[in-house]
Design a protein around this nucleic acid. Structure first.
Length: 117
DNA sequence: CTAATGACGAACT
DNA sequence: AAGTTCGCCATTA
């Protein structure tokens, strides 16, 4: 069986190693805590590659077991995108389920929930 | 080959 | 505080 992902065959210059590194970091985010896209990228050895993290998460096989919902943007909110067809609401639900409180601006106190290695 | 498009983010205005 | 601009870079048009 090939890797459980949906990336095109000619994916990244860094290859599967980059995808694996990103997933490895995300898997270490503790329950009830979050990490930003940029933070995950840096921790995976890919500084300034936040968009790549978003790209990988976007194309990840839904069946793969990974706490993808714990990855948020630097403003302390879930990145809402039309193309996600409600998947963003699901992310918020999962985070609230883990005890993260959202305020009226669809945001939460990032400084309070950010996972520091 | 060029241009636009992002699950992004920092710096400006 | 909120909107804009620019850097980022793989993918898509």
């Amino acid at each position: 069986m090939p890797p459980r992902r949906k990336l095109p065959a000619t994916a990244l210059p860094e290859g599967d190693a980059a995808v694996a590194a990103i997933c490895a970091v995300i898997r270490r985010i503790p329950k009830g805590w979050v990490a930003t896209y940029g933070q995950v990228a840096t921790m995976a050895g890919l500084p300034r590659r936040a968009r790549l993290v978003g790209y990988v998460l976007r194309h990840l096989d839904p069946a793969i077991q990974i706490p993808w919902h714990r990855v948020v943007n630097a403003k302390g909110e879930v990145s809402y995108t039309l193309s996600r067809n409600g998947g963003d609401d699901e992310q918020r639900r999962l985070l609230e389920e883990e005890g993260i409180l959202f305020n009226v601006g669809d945001r939460f106190a990032l400084e309070r929930y950010r996972w520091l290695d």
